[in-house]
Design a protein around this nucleic acid. Structure first.
Lengths: 157, 157
DNA sequence: TATTGTTATACTCTATAACTATA
DNA sequence: TATAGTTATAGAGTATAACAATA
């Protein structure tokens, strides 16, 4: 297990680099990470209510109001009345919003290819396998931790 | 290159999981990611001026003022006059701050070991190698991108 | 003149709580 | 009574600009 900590450190470094890279990519546009995430969900899930978006983004409905406000103002999406539920709003990507997400998909694929340029196919497959296992393990650990916290909360009450 | 996008997606997912895990770990403490990062830099670099911290964190001096304010209030560090430069402040970890960083180091090593539990040594080494190469590539791409932007800025001026 | 840290101001992301309009 | 979205309020993280004290 001599290499466990270096693997961990590299993963943290890559996470940090991704974050910085994305933040930089938004410079000069009206987009930010949170707003882009919302557009991405909309692009893949189609027109949605704000409540559905809040669930998908794991964020409060109030938060979605703010994000949708900003994206509506900058022309990436529109709010339309829900056809059957007059309480609800249907959020829909505009042409500009769709174009932005299409461009982002292309950039994403380009970056993915660039990251493993120079790898043999078998090396990429091995890396994929290793990452799949690490991600699964991490999900498990987080779930176990959440359980532990939940029962610790139930105890003192 | 069939696996390039899945590798990319896994890396993004792991980055996201790390972020959520850390945010959760701070619940109930006075610590947050940004404040913890500052303590970590202090733990590894020893007593520093706020300016040095701003450089290390790649953040504005004004931002450091706020982080140090909060950490001073919660007892993780102290501000002391710089021995030779009366403009500057020396920020130093308290015993509580050192203890928090020691605990964090142990948790980090535990998590790193857990992530690759069940991997053969050679598999961990291969994963480490793959991640090293991906991280190096990502750093290159970001640097190239920064260069491109810098010259694009010089042009229209 | 340049540097260190601060006050002033502002924007983004996030949260909770209270409220309105509808189901 | 419950749900969808909003207003009100607050705190964290970040930034720029102007300014004081010191180098």
């Amino acid at each position: 297990m001599r290499d466990a900590v270096p693997v961990f450190d590299r993963l943290l470094e890559i996470a940090d680099l991704f974050q910085r890279d994305m933040a930089r990519a938004f410079d000069g546009t009206a987009l930010t990470p949170a707003r882009t995430h919302l557009l991405w969900v909309l692009h893949h899930g189609g027109p949605s209510t704000q409540h559905a978006l809040a669930d998908a983004l794991e964020v409060t409905p109030r938060n979605v109001t703010g994000l949708v406000d900003a994206l509506e103002t900058s022309g990436f999406l529109t709010r339309e009345p829900h056809p059957t539920d007059r309480r609800a709003t249907l959020v829909t990507l505009t042409v500009q919003g769709e174009r932005a997400m299409t461009a982002m998909t292309a950039e994403r694929e380009q970056l993915a290819a660039d990251l493993v340029a120079g790898f043999a196919d078998a090396e990429v497959a091995a890396l994929r396998d290793g990452l799949d296992r690490v991600a699964a393990r991490l999900r498990e650990l987080i779930a176990a931790d959440a359980d532990r916290r939940a029962s610790a909360e139930r105890r003192p009450a």
